[in-house]
């Protein structure tokens, strides 16, 4: 397979996954905002910006801070590289470049997601924002299904590799930011926290039901952290994403007959993650753990690019 093709498929996976994540994040934030008293509602939007590491970019736009402006910035702002519309645009332009490698179903899902934003002005109220992010998630689910119905070959694997790497990053960011926002420095873990905020996290990673299945002792921060870091049952957990990365790389290695730096890094990470206990992580510093996970993920991304010569 051409390196360019592989690179386009990988980026297509990353961008579409990112768009889906931002859509989930915005949806959860809207709900939280509606539920909370005013000041806490504003804080939810601040944290949405922090999670996506776009607070500085938003400030640079010079727009007055307002929930409507943040929602616009994260969803339909074509000038902001981290908006849903831009992520979908990037996913689509990568898909276009490799269109013949994709099934029509997969292409259509991406194209339809892109068309959602055609000629759409800024979403004016919470309802409109919810409408658009739900539609994006629908197309994302359609795409996910289409990818799984595609031939089990390199084309599919590069898309899934991009998704897995992106997902690792997103979950780690979400947990890092929310955790620190919710936990003032003098607070003890498990102290007084805003229950709704924790629900937001679960909603963002579609884990509300999963949580109820897996934990019988009600909503506690330690359990949420455990779920998002160490439970392989949850597809968006760090351990599951790390394992998915290893699996997809192994499939590719079997086809190309080449093992490399990326395989080794991914395997090391997954082995470590499998032994990680969330209690120990919390005790020795969750923030440090997540930051180093994010950094390692970026290194892995680099190694993948080198190994498959994305150039």
């Amino acid at each position: 397979m051409l390196s360019r093709t592989a690179s386009s498929l990988y980026w297509l996976g990353r961008y579409f996954e990112r768009a889906d994540f931002i859509a989930r994040l915005v949806e959860a934030t809207v709900r939280l905002d509606v539920l909370s008293p005013r000041p806490a509602g504003e804080a939810a939007w601040t944290s949405a910006l922090t999670v996506t590491e776009t607070d500085a970019a938003f400030a640079a736009e010079g727009t007055k801070f307002h929930r409507r402006e943040v929602a616009r910035f994260l969803t339909v702002d074509a000038g902001h590289p981290g908006s849903i519309v831009r992520c979908i645009g990037m996913a689509r332009s990568n898909a276009r470049a490799v269109r013949t490698a994709l099934t029509r179903e997969a292409w259509t899902a991406i194209n339809r997601a892109w068309l959602l934003f055609e000629g759409r002005p800024a979403a004016s109220d919470a309802g409109a924002v919810l409408g658009i992010v739900e539609a994006v998630q629908n197309e994302a689910r359609g795409f996910e299904g289409a990818v799984h119905r595609m031939l089990r070959n390199q084309t599919t694997w590069f898309v899934r590799l991009g998704q897995a790497v992106e997902r690792s990053d997103n979950t780690a960011r979400l947990l890092d930011v929310k955790y620190h926002l919710l936990l003032p420095e003098h607070e003890r873990v498990g102290g007084v926290v805003d229950r709704d905020q924790w629900t937001t996290i679960l909603q963002t990673v579609s884990a509300v039901t999963a949580y109820r299945w897996l934990y019988s002792d009600g909503l506690t921060p330690a359990n949420v952290i455990d779920l998002l870091i160490a439970r392989s049952e949850l597809p968006r957990s760090l351990v599951a994403s790390a394992q998915e990365t290893v699996d997809v790389l192994a499939l590719l290695a079997r086809r190309t007959g080449q093992h490399g730096e990326a395989d080794r890094m991914a395997r090391n990470r997954a082995n470590r993650m499998a032994k990680t206990r969330s209690g120990e992580v919390i005790a020795s510093g969750l923030h440090e753990f997540l930051r180093s996970f994010i950094d390692e993920n970026a290194l892995l991304h680099g190694a993948i690019g080198r190994q498959f010569k994305f150039g």
């Binding site: 051409l2 390196s3 360019r4 590719l252 007959g257 080449q258 010569k309």
Partner: peptide, 28 residues
């Protein structure tokens, strides 16, 4: 390209080195 079973390449997928044309693939 699909019906012949050959790669569809763009200029950037090819490099010339030592007067030989190479295609950049994931396997080198």
């Amino acid at each position: 390209a699909d019906s012949m079973g050959i790669e569809l390449v763009e200029g950037a997928d090819l490099v010339v080195d030592d007067d030989i044309v190479w295609m950049r693939t994931i396997a080198g």
